[in-house]
């Protein structure tokens, strides 16, 4: 059962990165769209993510619940040493979720919209940035449980160039996923071309920030290159991701939306796979080669069993409904998709 739980944990993280990521990315795209096109972008985006955003965001909660029920030591260590970035991320989640809803349900359209929009786009940027920082910190080996003063224990653990570049990389990935997703949602040609251009820009940003991750890893003496290229599974995943990237650029010009989405999803999956496969089962690296392992630091057996059962049982209910939700709102009929009386 432990492995079932671990697979769910990994899948929840991946799905949050893919679906939640595309969701954040939509805000990032809006941030980097020139003011005259923003309104159009916003409209396409709202129709695309409106019905599913609550569900997307559940993957994060599932991840947290799996951690605290199944791996309490990992959850509580992260909570203590990453308190500050977690709080910033939470602030981002609060700001984003509420601003997104407020701007569409406010009965009066006035200057408040400007405020909601601003909050929405900035928090769409900050939240994945800090998610990336947290993820980067988890593998950086800079958390020091023996630190006795404030700065080393609660600041230097997460504030370093490596984690920041992972944060930027995460932002770029989110933007990229969103752009690819929106290509298929665009209702007219100029919009479509604009999203294709955005997808290319975001892809370049992802490659550049990905490079930055390697450089900073080298400078901070984090053996990232060895992790990723040092084993066959990781290496093949990276090669597969790179090859699919070539294919993706080729297809971008031709606009096969479904294949594009699959490819983008595939790439992100491969990246997550490559970065986690090597040091599995250890997911949090601490200072001085200590680590927290999914196998050694899992909770009590009975708790894990019940958790696994709950997850399996839940999936039977959730997955069909979720697919039906996505399927229903994928069907093109823009006229009737009006979410509310205001439209």
């Amino acid at each position: 059962m432990l492995y079932v739980v671990i697979i769910y944990l990994w899948a929840a993280i991946l799905l949050y990165l893919l679906l939640g990521g595309a969701d954040f990315g939509a805000g990032i795209i809006e941030l980097f769209t020139s003011p005259k096109n923003r309104k159009r972008t916003r409209k396409v985006m709202y129709k695309a993510i409106g019905p599913v955003w609550e569900a997307n965001h559940m993957w994060l909660i599932i991840t947290i619940v799996i951690l605290f029920v199944g791996f309490p030591e990992i959850y509580s260590t992260m909570s203590v040493y990453l308190h500050i970035p977690l709080v910033i991320m939470l602030m981002g989640i609060i700001a984003r979720g509420t601003a997104f809803t407020f701007r569409h349900y406010d009965a009066v359209v006035d200057d408040m919209q400007v405020l909601y929009n601003r909050i929405f786009v900035y928090s769409s940027f900050v939240t994945p940035l800090f998610l990336g920082i947290i993820a980067g910190t988890a593998v950086s080996g800079k958390i020091d449980p023996h630190a006795s003063t404030f700065l080393p224990a609660y600041i230097y653990s997460w504030l370093h160039w490596f984690s920041i570049s992972v944060g930027l990389f995460t932002v770029a990935i989110c933007g990229f996923l969103a752009a690819i997703y929106l290509i298929g949602e665009a209702e007219n040609e100029p919009d479509r071309l604009r999203f294709i251009r955005k997808a290319k820009q975001m892809n370049v940003a992802a490659v550049l920030s990905g490079g930055l991750v390697f450089i900073t890893a080298y400078l901070e003496k984090i053996p990232l290159i060895e992790w990723i290229f040092g084993n066959a599974a990781g290496l093949s995943a990276i090669i597969a991701a790179t090859l699919s990237l070539v294919l993706l650029w080729y297809l971008l010009a031709r606009g096969k939306t479904r294949v594009l989405r699959l490819l983008a999803g595939f790439q992100v999956t491969m990246i997550l796979f490559a970065t986690t496969v090597r040091h599995f089962p250890n997911i949090v690296m601490l200072k001085n080669n200590a680590y927290l392992s999914l196998l050694e630091h899992s909770g009590h057996e009975k708790a894990i069993n019940m958790l696994g059962m709950a997850l399996l049982l839940g999936s039977i209910f959730i997955l069909p409904a979720l697919f039906y939700l996505i399927y229903s709102f994928q069907k093109k009929d823009p006229e009737k998709l009006r979410p509310s009386a205001k439209g």
Binding site: M58, I61, V65, A303
Partner: peptide, 28 residues
């Protein structure tokens, strides 16, 4: 949470399913 998580986590694991269904149904 270190000690209580695994013990009182059962309702939270089930709650995940309830929330999910709620969010999906709300979308519909």
């Amino acid at each position: 949470m270190l000690h209580a998580g695994p013990i009182f986590g059962m309702p939270f694991s089930l709650e995940g399913t309830a929330f999910f269904i709620e969010a999906i149904a709300l979308g519909f």
